[in-house]
């Protein structure tokens, strides 16, 4: 993980202001605790289906979304809790969605893989690998068509790059110069298959070159590295209407989903080693070293998050199940 330099431009980060910096840390902690709590509820069978945890990758959603405007769009795959939380969706309705409740963001119809928040321009959680890539491209097409001052961050996994949909979409974006930033969250595996066992070219950012799309690489465990890279790519999309393929190198600490027997394809030692780059720890250290926050304030963030997550679970548990007739709702626009 040393083939790219992390340029820590402390001055610039400080210019983000204390509030924003602490808020970014707060959001990363919230994502992690929210998911730990979801994992617990899953083991108690209060949540069902597939649950893909984002733990370890928090800096990607938080750093990238901090670098865009509220007019911008985002779209991602099924590992979507972090993106929705970072975009500002009320975590209570997200937890309620995981519990399948009527108060959930999709009224209990979507579950973990399908978080949507149209108002905040979070255009989903998508469960078919690669399917969101043409969609993100179409969203960017609309932004250009309507001359909006907006870009679309389109997130995908490393393994999703092997889908035809990815290649067709990138060709369109390169050809029609669309304001889209493809963010490949390279967590080194697609389920149990390591990148080098699935991709003929392992420098993933180069895979855009076939379509004339510039590649970038950033350290996905460092929230500022992600922030910088996305800021630059979004600027290029906004001002020049040019797409970028940004590979962020990250790591998922948990199994692919709750049912994944982790031990077949990677070692405990590898996981422990990756955890040494923990994005939350790195950010905390930065806040303390730069005297942006005191230990006491850090502790308060932890306390607040604990409170919020407890409220999420309480809200979800006390919410009603959807009425049976609701299964016929929202199939067609009436």
């Amino acid at each position: 993980m040393s083939d790219y330099a992390v340029q820590t431009n402390t001055e610039e980060y400080l210019s983000l202001g204390r509030n924003k910096l602490v808020e970014m840390y707060h959001t990363m902690v919230l994502i992690r605790r929210f998911e730990e709590s979801a994992a617990k509820a899953y083991s108690q069978q209060k949540i069902g289906g597939f649950l893909h945890l984002y733990i370890g990758q928090e800096a990607v959603a938080v750093g990238s979304i901090a670098a865009i405007h509220k007019e911008d769009y985002i779209i991602t795959a099924y590992r979507d809790h972090g993106h929705a939380i970072a975009r500002g969706t009320d975590p209570r309705i997200l937890m309620a969605e995981l519990f399948g409740k009527y108060t959930g963001s999709s009224k209990g119809k979507g579950g973990s893989m399908h978080f949507f928040d149209a108002e905040r321009k979070m255009l989903g959680g998508h469960a078919i690998v690669g399917a969101q890539v043409p969609l993100g491209t179409g969203i960017a097409f609309k932004a250009k068509y309507r001359k909006e001052d907006a870009v679309c961050l389109t997130y995908l996994g490393d393994a999703a790059m092997n889908q035809g949909a990815f290649h067709e979409a990138l060709n369109l974006a390169g050809l029609w110069k669309l304001p889209v930033v493809y963010i490949v969250e390279n967590n080194m595996y697609g389920m149990g298959t390591a990148v080098e066992r699935a991709s003929a070219v392992t420098e993933l950012s180069k895979r855009g070159s076939a379509y004339g799309i510039e590649g970038m690489v950033a350290d996905g465990m460092n929230v500022f590295a992600v922030y910088d890279a996305v800021k630059e790519a979004a600027k290029k999309a906004r001002e020049l209407s040019l797409p970028t393929l940004l590979e962020v190198r990250t790591y998922r600490y948990r199994g692919h989903s709750m049912s994944d027997p982790d031990s077949i394809y990677r070692t405990k030692q590898e996981i422990e080693e990756e955890k040494r780059r923990d994005p939350l720890e790195q950010m905390k250290k930065f806040l303390l070293d730069e005297k942006i926050a005191t230990q006491k304030e850090i502790d308060r963030v932890d306390e607040e998050v604990k409170q919020t997550v407890a409220e999420c679970v309480e809200f979800a548990e006390n919410s009603p199940e959807p009425p049976l007739e609701s299964m016929y709702d929202d199939i067609y626009v009436q």
Binding site: G100, G108, K109, L324, M327
Partner: peptide, 16 residues
């Protein structure tokens, strides 16, 4: 099956 996309909620799913 009911003529609907499958909802995530367990009770709806059972009834679909």
């Amino acid at each position: 099956a009911e003529d609907v996309p499958m909802p995530y909620n367990k009770i709806l799913e059972h009834n679909a």
